[in-house]
Design a binder for these strands. Structure first.
Lengths: 151, 151
DNA sequence: TCTCACTTGTTATATTATAACATATCATAT
DNA sequence: ATATGATATGTTATAATATAACAAGTGAGA
């Protein structure tokens, strides 16, 4: 059962991940600038994925007239440092649930409630003698436990 | 070792897959129209993924002034029926290597030669009690055997 | 305080994909 | 063989996602 689909104190969840990211940035001399932090906080709001233009619009609503490159740069920083991931099937982004672990993310995407659960994939099912895998994504779509009960 | 990275008689490989698709269409009453077949043949040319606009341009070069929806419709037919897959990380499309098997595709993408190998993933590493997985993709990037030897 | 690296602003445009409606084609029933 | 309805394609326009290129601002250490 992944975090996104289980009841939990999300306020704490959010704060805890943000704290972890801040710590890592501190330690590694990475600059979690205001813009980067705001984008991360938006992604942490809930367990759904947000598109770059959703983020853009939200910043707009908050009074920041920001252009696409600004958002994409923040996302680039977050994804390159493992603080967020792109969900390729959705062309959208999520905050990483395990910012302190180097890992390949595996996503469970609920097509009902749109929540996205993340798991750390440790052993690649694609491992193939001869092919040197550098990184890997897994994205499953389906119906989460909560939505499955509802029908 | 997947097909795409091993030496093989690609002329035969191509023809064999096309034949399989034709048979399946025959049996299932699916119409492999000229446009659909041409797009599939282009995807079968080699083991790299092609973008929709690559296909469009190639059709253009062959004298067919075709618009995007035409290509996307052909791709929709091919992917919906399991004759091709979209490689999400590349926003590009490949012919399926196993058109006769219902499966979730796993891709090995070589960042050197751009070849894409396909495997049938049978057991999901994301399987999670409670979440009902309907379909799943896996895409690994790295260096294939042939390119790894070259450096 | 200078300087250099890094970050963000700004403008323009590239790339990927789809909506909506018109026309053509095909399979089959008559 | 032809009318009919379903399926496929043509056509125009536009949406959605992403990046290039250059200017300006900011911050940490020399």
């Amino acid at each position: 059962m992944t975090l996104a689909f289980s009841e939990h104190d999300h306020k704490y969840c959010r704060a805890s991940i943000l704290r972890q990211v801040e710590d890592i940035c501190q330690k590694q001399g990475l600059r979690l600038t205001d813009m980067r932090k705001r984008v991360l906080e938006m992604l942490l709001k809930n367990h759904t994925a947000l598109g770059a233009y959703d983020l853009l619009a939200q910043l707009g609503r908050e009074g920041e007239a920001v252009q696409p490159p600004t958002v994409y740069r923040a996302l680039a920083f977050l994804t390159e440092n493992g603080f967020a991931h792109k969900v390729e099937r959705l062309n959208a982004y999520v905050a990483c649930h395990f910012p302190d672990k180097v890992h390949n993310p595996g996503f469970l995407i609920c097509r009902c409630c749109k929540a996205v659960g993340e798991t750390c994939v440790v052993k690649s099912p694609l491992a193939d003698q001869g092919f040197d895998i550098e990184n890997e994504i897994m994205e499953a779509e389906g119906v989460c436990e909560n939505c499955g009960l509802d029908n």
